[in-house]
Amino acid sequence: MKVLVTGGAGFVGSHTVVELIAAGHDVRVVENFCNSERWIVERIERITGQTLVLDELDIRDRAALLAVARDYAPDAVIHFAALKSVSESTEMPASYYDVNVGGTATLLDVMQQVGCKHIVFSSSATVYGQPESCPVAETAAVGPGNPYGRTKLIGEWLIRDCVAAPGSTLSAAILRYFNPVGAHPSGLMGELPRGVPNNLAPYITQTAAGQRDYIRVFGDDYATPDGTGVRDYIHVVDLAKAHVAALNALSVGTDRELTLNLGTGRGYSVLELIETFSAVVGHPIPYQRQGRRAGDIGECWADPALANRVLGWRAEKSLQDICADAWRWQQAIPGAVD
């Protein structure tokens, strides 16, 4: 299958490109490198042994995107391109709506013009907001508490409306990620935030490497076993393989629209994650407890049963695998922090 991947040099996108190529798909990437590095392309090529076809453009550039789509005539799109920081989205919401909603609308219009029939959409568990109970199933109420989550939910609505439009031949898989972590086991690719990490795992590895003084643990009075927040951490390679499985499900199945949670089905606390990283690294990683951050929730982990059943997929890698691969990646990029 010919697959156009938007944001294919990003954290989840790059790993998915590797898995798509391994599965025998023909891949072309569009990327503007606002959240990624150009040298990741060379890393993808080293892992896959194939030259990657890439067009540097912004998905809001309708003419440029349409030219690529007409030239390539993709069978499917996997759509990662987006701004992705919850905290930043509260500071610059207009930009988040412009890129995440406007870019998705432009992409869907271009897909319609060239007759592309399948889209796999990178959504987020942030669409659930504060869940009433865990594990969280796809039937849980949605109510994102920040602009980033709202842009993802609006993206879902846009896609469903396009699927339901009269005469539409579009089918869609909407994938709600929980917490992607880890790195490629080769040590060639992984999460590389610019500036101070927004996510916990790279903050832990940077602290373990001596690039930061300590980890700030926000909140120790939640109704959880050790008082710290509990999350569902899924290895990025497991997550990438789920995208390939979703693409296959759309191409051979009868469902026009799938909305699926991608997680492990188990939650780990912040302290459990730090302790596991410490065991992998071989020394304690310093941390300090601080007050809760506004908007944070106590616990959130997935019920992945529907994805397990519909895709024939399940997360296989352990928390130890996550920490070992993330640490291998961190060691390969010394000094890669502002």
Rank of each mutant, 00 (worst) to 15 (best):
I78D: 10
F80V: 00
F80D: 02
A81N: 03
A81K: 00
A82G: 02
K84W: 00
S85M: 09
E88Q: 14
E88G: 13
E88S: 12
S89C: 08
S89T: 11
T90C: 14
M92Q: 15
P93H: 01
A94W: 09
A94G: 07
Y96G: 03
Y97S: 04
D98I: 03
D98Y: 05
V99D: 09
N100H: 08
N100Y: 04
G103C: 11
T104I: 00
T104G: 04
A105Y: 12
A105D: 15
T106N: 14
T106W: 03
L107G: 10
L107R: 01
L108E: 07
D109Q: 13
V110T: 03
M111G: 06
M111Q: 01
Q112R: 15
G115Q: 02
G115Y: 12
C116A: 15
K117R: 15
H118F: 06
V120T: 08
S122I: 00
S122D: 10
S122H: 04
S123M: 12
S124E: 08
S124M: 06
S124Q: 01
T126W: 00
Y128S: 06
Y128E: 01
Y128K: 05
G129Q: 12
G129C: 14
Q130P: 04
S133I: 00
S133T: 12
P135T: 14
P135S: 14
A137S: 15
A140R: 02
A141E: 14
A141I: 07
P144V: 14
G145Q: 13
G145D: 05
G145H: 05
G145C: 08
G145F: 00
N146Q: 07
P147E: 13
Y148M: 01
G149E: 13
G149A: 10
G149L: 12
G149Q: 05
R150L: 13
K152D: 11
L153N: 10
L153P: 03
L153K: 02
E156T: 13
E156I: 06
W157Y: 13
L158K: 05
I159M: 10
I159F: 09
R160C: 08
R160A: 15
V163A: 04
V163T: 05
A165M: 04
S168M: 04
S168C: 12
T169H: 13
T169V: 13
T169M: 08
L170I: 08
A172Y: 02
A173W: 12
A173H: 14
I174D: 01
L175P: 14
R176F: 05
Y177G: 00
Y177H: 08
F178E: 03
P180A: 06
V181D: 06
G182A: 11
G182W: 03
G182C: 06
A183L: 14
A183V: 12
A183R: 03
A183W: 13
H184Q: 07
